[in-house]
């Protein structure tokens, strides 16, 4: 039964061509990240070459190529921004359309008057969403790999591992947004309100929460000092402690550590940053099961 729901959902997404649009957009974003990385690198190299020529002409020794000092995966650093922006938004849409038909058009009445249990339905839906998101990211992974091979003329096994880990983390980051897309359909009375609520949740998680955690210390981004907050500033201390609640920040920090684009971070610190994300996924999964279990699908159409 779970397999049936799962394969039906994948077929439905494919038929609606939503998946095609999302794959195209994700690939475009990945290619853009690669192009921007390449553009940045070639600019640095051009400036370096020009400086080297001038230094050589004046008889001075040339410094080492700055690009060689940069981690190879820094080429893809923009992906850390695109995943929470573009990827999470698409995950919300996928989650929304995966259940909206059944809830709002009365299809749920047909489905739940059959032998299938609501737990089987929810499991099938969540698994299909997780797989579709994995497929999207796999396509993005392929483009990233191609960009790295093209620009860097090769990739080490360690970098390949880091890249795989980054995409696994990104998948984990997108799953809760798909769940939010699902849950808002069950909590609201119309499709448009559901989509609006899910978008609102995405905005809050992506932009508002980070503002209330590290974003309230704007000087830190310009001049990252270790203890910018005075002991008397209780509010800022509280918001600083709330930083683990910002899954965007946790994702960005963990991604930077994995891609080696941030100063060296202990492995356990990176693992600790992933824990709030895992907790978020767990809470939303339980909520999705509970809501589908108690939702009145008979009221999706008019009743007497």
């Amino acid at each position: 039964m779970i397999t049936t729901i799962f394969s039906h959902q994948v077929l439905a997404l494919r038929r609606q061509r939503v998946l095609l649009v999302l794959v195209a957009a994700i690939l475009l974003a990945t290619a853009l990240a690669g192009a921007l990385g390449w553009s940045s690198q070639s600019t640095i190299v051009r400036v370096f070459d020009e400086a080297t020529r001038q230094l050589a002409a004046s008889g001075a020794p040339a410094p080492p190529n700055p690009f060689l000092l940069k981690p190879h995966l820094s080429l893809l650093s923009n992906m850390v921004v695109y995943i929470p922006l573009v990827g999470a938004l698409f995950a919300v849409i996928l989650g929304h359309i995966s259940i909206a038909d059944e809830e709002s058009s009365g299809l749920g009445r047909l489905l739940f008057s059959r032998s299938m249990s609501r737990a089987q339905y929810t499991t099938g839906k969540i698994l299909s969403l997780a797989l579709v998101l994995a497929g999207l990211l796999l396509a993005s992974f392929a483009v990233s790999l191609a960009a790295l091979l093209l620009v860097n003329q090769g990739i080490s096994v360690a970098d390949l591992g880091r890249l795989s880990l980054f995409y696994t983390l990104s998948w984990l980051y997108l799953v809760p947004f798909a769940l939010i897309g699902m849950i808002t359909v069950l909590l609201t009375t119309s499709r448009s309100l559901a989509l609006l609520s899910a978008m609102g949740a995405w905005l809050v998680i992506t932009f508002a929460v980070p503002q209330f955690t590290s974003g309230l210390r704007p000087t830190q981004s310009l001049n990252p000092i270790i203890e910018p907050i005075g002991l008397s500033q209780a509010f800022f201390q509280a918001t600083a402690k709330a930083q683990p609640l910002s899954i965007v920040e946790q994702y960005k920090a963990a991604s930077a550590a994995i891609l080696d684009t941030a100063p060296s971070v202990a492995v356990m610190d990176t693992v600790a940053r992933v824990m709030p994300l895992l907790g978020f996924v767990a809470i939303l999964t339980v909520a999705a099961f509970a809501l589908v279990r108690t939702h009145d699908f008979s009221r999706s159409a008019s009743h007497e």
Binding site: M1, H8, A12, R15, D101, S105, L111
Partner: peptide, 24 residues
């Protein structure tokens, strides 16, 4: 069960809809 307003998956064929619901 036949509801008052018959709604099924518009992007699927009649056979695909029936096959899916039969499996359930």
């Amino acid at each position: 069960y036949l509801p008052a307003e018959v709604r099924m998956y518009g992007h699927l064929t009649a056979l695909e809809n029936l096959e899916f619901l039969a499996t359930l």
